[in-house]
């Protein structure tokens, strides 16, 4: 799995490539927690190259969403493929997250 961080004007984009499973999601968790140590910022998860997300990956997103809500910032998920989108649908994540 590859994680790329792009710092934009309004938001920080975290692009994830490959599979987000039990092993790799801890990397993303670290990346996200590093991000929250800095000032309040909007986050965009770019999942265009994400092949699969496991419950461990969902947990990281859920934690990020809670954090974003607490900071009154915004979080968006973009580019997710159908498999990943379906997982968001099934788990109800699409109800509480902004998934484009």
């Amino acid at each position: 799995m590859e994680i790329t961080r792009i710092i934009g004007e309004d938001a920080i984009t975290i692009a994830v490539e490959g599979r987000l499973d039990t092993v790799t999601s801890s990397q993303l968790e670290q990346e996200v927690s590093d991000l929250f140590e800095q000032e309040k910022s909007n986050i965009i998860f770019d999942f265009a190259s994400l092949e699969y997300i496991s419950s461990a990956g969902l947990r990281v997103l859920l934690a990020a969403q809670k954090q974003v809500n607490a900071l009154e910032a915004e979080m968006r998920i973009i580019g997710a493929n159908d498999v990943v989108k379906e997982i968001f649908e099934i788990t109800g994540f699409s109800d509480i997250m902004q998934i484009d």
Binding site: L62, T91, G92, D95, I96
Partner: peptide
């Protein structure tokens, strides 16, 4: 209908 997972967020 898919609702949010349990433990994910309060007041669902």
């Amino acid at each position: 209908k898919a609702y949010l997972v349990l433990g994910g967020m309060e007041d669902i």
